[in-house]
Design a protein around this nucleic acid. Sequence first.
DNA 1: AACGAATCCTGTGCGC
DNA 2: TGCGCACAGGATTCGT
Length: 274
Amino acid sequence: MPELPEVETVRRGLEKLIREGAIVSVVDLRTKKIRFDVPRDFKKKLLNAVFRKVTRRAKYLLFDFGEITLVSHLGMTGSWRSIATVDREADQRKHDHLYIEFSNGLRLAFNDPRRFGIIDLEKDISKSRWLKHLGPEPFDPVFAAELFKSKARAKTSTIKTFLMDQKNVVGVGNIYASEALFLAGVRPQRRAGKVTMHEWERLIGSIRNVLNRAIEAGGTTLQDHRQVSGETGGFQNRLKVYDRKGEACVNCKSPIKQTVIGGRATYWCPKCQK
DNA sequence: AACGAATCCTGTGCGC
DNA sequence: TGCGCACAGGATTCGT
């Protein structure tokens, strides 16, 4: 499901609901393991913790409780939803793995059918195994053409694979990689090392542009993505190539092509992208 | 060491 | 309607 815009949308939803200073009053963990083991003392450590803020790093949500941080990754199908007090007992769904309640009555559920998501606790987030190999955020000025042209210099893998590798730059997944490459006019199957300086400049701009517009739209809902409120996102209506195989290119009317790169469906315009 | 493939898991949609 | 198969927004782990 979720790339940076979807995770950021969820973060903003959570931020609106969880008050700073709210105390965790209920931790109801329904499974020992999602993709990886949840810490054995999860409940004990989280209960009575005082909420500070929720931030995002790459595609990870970080619930800051001061002495401890709840780390959550949505994998492909993970979601957080808020449950109204009146539905407290009634709204329990298949694949709900965790419920957290706060002193002000807010109840949250983490649901993940495919179980590719992560729920973990970290004492010191700067040492987190999940975060330490990540590249820069796409909006960080460090993500600049000169540096990335040089980083990619010796890479024989495709530019699409390079952009989706979170060690290079974070937040770009399968949908937005195709979209950004289209906006920049670069074919996804081009070798990363052969992308020119000018193309890197366009690519970085396109990535920032598409991610920003997708955040504004509340993310892309193809099937699973939901905001914390339960609403779908809106960016699926603005996709230019993803999931549009055979449809007319918005620029040149050529049929959009689909291929597989790195095992993932990839969409591009054979005329607009060089 | 770098790259691509296989893998974890459940649900959905399609062809027959 | 039912069955089998391919495929799905991620990213670690494995094999070459």
